[in-house]
Amino acid sequence: MKLLNKLLCVAALLGAALGTPLAQAATELKLDKAPVSFSNASLQNGAKLFVNYCMGCHGASFLRYNRLTQIGLTEQQIKDNLMFSTDKVGEQMKIALRREDAKQWFGVAPPDLTLVARARASESGTGADWLYTYLRSFYRDDTRPTGWNNVVFPNVGMPHALWSLQGEQEARLVTKDDGHGKKVTEIEKLEVVKPGLLMPEEYDAQVADLVSFLVWMGEPSQETRRGLGWIVLAALGVLAVLAYLLKHAYWKDVH
């Protein structure tokens, strides 16, 4: 058993080594932590932003409108404020844009966003962190067909859909030594050069709500799942105690 312990120690160390943030290569992203909130107010605001700013091009084809009752909206409110393309509340949040047309216009068809928060998770952070950073990292770039570029998603096909809220940012470049004696140009930071409707903090809060909604949309039953989890764990805990006592009751005659 000594060997076993040693092996387990090695495994644990390896696991720890894997878990610790490694010295990242230059290409790795630094993502801001997204302040995700599942309060009804945040999710409702996020839903409103999503319908107004995203659903022109992006669908959420796995989500039915009436699911939004789960975030505190009534069916009437959904019908009145959020549904433009259909009148059936059980319908999925699809868009009228044809994929072929979209491909023609943007080069790539805008992806369906139902699962985007789950798909964008990586070693650099959660999908929410990626989205939160991405939506705040657009800057003006005249070399791009849309006039926009993004720090998190270089040469992105999408223009800055929320620019009227955030305003226009420009990239401040800095030339640095890369450690091998070569000069490389990097983006040091983004600066708002033309203010939008919102102050930067207000904009961040709006993006946080939108991201919260996207996370919720990725798996609308996630809070129920976690809630149920505690009950299941408690029941299994009781089962384990009983099973332990049962085992002892039998094994007392093994000698």
Binding site: A25, T27, H180, K182, V184
Partner: peptide, 9 residues
Amino acid sequence: PGAESGIGD
């Protein structure tokens, strides 16, 4: 090309 690619000088 070069080091900026992250592949090699």
